[in-house]
Simulated assay, not measured.
Amino acid sequence: MRERMDAFAYTALPGRVVFGTGTLAQLSEEMERLECRRAFVLSTPQQADKARELLSDLGEHGAGLFDGATMHTPVEVTERALAIARELEADCTVAFGGGSTIGLGKAIALRADLPQICIPTTYAGSEMTPIIGQTENGVKTTQRTEKVLPEVTIYDVDLTLTLPALLSATSGLNAMAHAVEALYAKDRNPVIALLAEEAVSALASALPKVVADGVDRRARTDALYGAWLCGMCLGSVGMALHHKLCHVLGGAFDLPHAETHAIVLPHALAYNAAAAQSAAAALSRALGTQDPAQALFDLAGKLGAPRALRQIGMPEDGIAPAAELALENPYWNPRPIGRDAIETLIARAWAGEPPSALR
């Protein structure tokens, strides 16, 4: 039975979504809706060629391109991009890519209040949130402000057809983490609970098909739909232990964002499941299992995603320091956060061991 809540607060976030196939062609129209005429296109170096094509297609409405977006939104990269945007007299940003690029657009909006159009090419979900994470001197900090919420998101299934299998898997699992934690968030509500359960179900069903056949349009559509819902979850309620751990690990060791989330998720869920029984029940329904933490660990293995932090570059001697950092300014969590238990959790995630409740 789904949890019933007699009292809750729900804030609907403003933002326009254009979803479908071939929707990239509507970019100029969406700029017109925002009354913008000089778009500053953003991408990572890996997406530079496609971003350059997009800039060319914009014609006189393309102000320029910055292709230096990178993981964890380093402040120095943002300052460099912002200086170029001002020099070009850009009146909006168009973020073409995944979480790194969208994060850069948000960081520019935070400082210059430029309208944002996001064109996601992965399943990260950041485009649906008023949350920004930034890294300076090896420390990643986050804040929530509607100033960084993108005005328009264009989801084009066509852009995901060439997303490599491994990146599809890790970014999809990263998205699922948003929905999982939304189910036991301190400020959870029935609207987001419904979206979260649907999101996990859609992604869990679609990702194996996407990995098996990357041009399966039905599976790609379902995965992108699930990722959108996950992003809405992340943007609407607070997160907990899982996201705190991933922010600590990513910022301290410069670990790849999506892979870190994919690895930590089953362990954080196992830690919290007994203290969040309604969330565990929803995930059991979505995943068709009585042990959702183990199911997520098994899903990562089936998808070929990494399941050990050591695989993605975390040093073993970083386990204890990471546990200490996780206890600094901790996020609210349904289960108390104990120093020894968290160190053990990180150690198991480092080694790639199955998730454990750590009682």
Rank of each mutant, 00 (worst) to 15 (best):
F8C: 12
M31R: 00
A95N: 09
R188P: 03
P120S: 04
A204Y: 13
E136F: 14
V264S: 07
A9V: 14
A320T: 15
P14C: 12
Q143G: 13
G15D: 02
A323E: 11
K140T: 01
T153S: 06
C233W: 06
G172P: 10
H61F: 04
G172V: 09
W228M: 15
V180R: 04
P150T: 01
C36M: 06
A63T: 05
E197A: 12
L183W: 02
A323G: 15
R16E: 06
T170P: 15
L296N: 03
D340M: 11
E87T: 12
P45Y: 02
T260W: 11
G99C: 08
E151P: 10
R335W: 12
P130W: 07
T162Q: 15
L309T: 02
I119T: 06
A320M: 12
P130H: 09
R217M: 15
E127I: 02
T93G: 03
G214V: 07
C246Q: 07
A293M: 04
L283W: 00
T145W: 03
G20P: 00
L110A: 15
L13R: 08
E197N: 15
R218E: 15
A39M: 04
E60F: 05
D156V: 06
M31K: 08
P266Q: 08
G238F: 11
R38Q: 04
G238A: 11
E197D: 14
D222T: 14
A25F: 02
W350D: 04
E181F: 09
K302H: 15
A169Q: 12
P336S: 14
E76D: 14
A182R: 03
P74V: 02
T129V: 04
T121A: 00
E316I: 12
R307E: 04
T160Y: 03
I117E: 00
Q134P: 00
M5D: 09
A185E: 10
G64F: 03
S356T: 13
P190C: 03
K140M: 00
D340H: 14
L161A: 08
G352W: 02
K50P: 00
A274G: 14
A240D: 09
P306D: 11
P292A: 04
S201D: 14
G352V: 07
R217C: 12
Q311W: 10
E198P: 14
K140Y: 07
A95L: 08
A7H: 15
L303Q: 05
